[in-house]
Design a protein around this nucleic acid. Sequence first.
DNA 1: ATTGTGAAAGAATTTTATTCTATCTGTTTA
DNA 2: TAAACAGATAGAATAAAATTCTTTCACAAT
Lengths: 162, 162
Amino acid sequence: MPKRSSKEESTTLDKTDLEILQLLQHNARITIKEIAEKVHLSTTPVHERIRRMEERGVIRQYVTLLDGAKVKKGLMVICYISLRQHSKMAGNKFIKSIQEMNEVIECLTISGEFDFMLKVVAENMDAYYDFHVNRLSQIENIGNVQSVFVMGVIKQTHQLVW
Amino acid sequence: MPKRSSKEESTTLDKTDLEILQLLQHNARITIKEIAEKVHLSTTPVHERIRRMEERGVIRQYVTLLDGAKVKKGLMVICYISLRQHSKMAGNKFIKSIQEMNEVIECLTISGEFDFMLKVVAENMDAYYDFHVNRLSQIENIGNVQSVFVMGVIKQTHQLVW
DNA sequence: ATTGTGAAAGAATTTTATTCTATCTGTTTA
DNA sequence: TAAACAGATAGAATAAAATTCTTTCACAAT
């Protein structure tokens, strides 16, 4: 059996790991002490398990979610984009532009009529219009752009394990 | 001038608040001490500012993001749904069903041809097919359902202030 | 000028994280 | 079969951080 590299120690997640992840998903600022109590372990193994899951990349990031309306980002728009040209280089240029636009909080490559789906936030319709016309549409190689407005958020979670 | 209720103290966010939010958005487990150093304040006012933003709901939640592929949720699908009937009650029933489905991590009300846009995660195509046919399509009052598959994630952030 | 208010610093205290050592359990190896 | 080993854990010791309290300062209102 080949010896495993000391990095990327690929074990599977056991029941306790999943319990810890559940707790962290709900509240990234929960203390290790509190987790330990809930999973019936001492702080040491909990600490160690979290460290390992961070190292393995199971845990990607601890983030804080804000209320969009309260930080002047009350408008959300889904934006579909197709490129005129689909060469690798053309695609990479587009991606680079998108990465630099703070208004774009999500960009997915999708199947179907369009190439990309963007989630864009803005303060209001004027701000979005400005973004659309003066920044998004100015990216070279952009083909079709179609905006769908989000009227309400019914559900929004990041809970991948349960 | 009317006296303000002691709850919901609605002040505006100053530059320092925004700096603190930026740091917390990137890393929800950053220590108050470290924030304090970066914004050139002592821990006391930082602590107080965070508490206030939590209370006001500017800060919605501290969450941990996981790597979908590493927790057996490697497939992401965008799913468009229209209802047959648009009465308030029919809508509420649908919403209730959606809330209970862990595979649905996002549900938005949108303008255009469809009523809702869902983001669904699953382990693989088989699991998604099962979800689609046996659970999603079984909700009463469902009209059209259209699935768009996510081939890649170009960008995914939660940074609303920058 | 005086009072009041809000924000902040700094010290004191409490709580938590982190590290270290020892133990326990189950498995491999001689 | 017994000894050696590895992995996970508990518990204690230490280091670091959070939280609370008191005091000070700056500015606005009276």
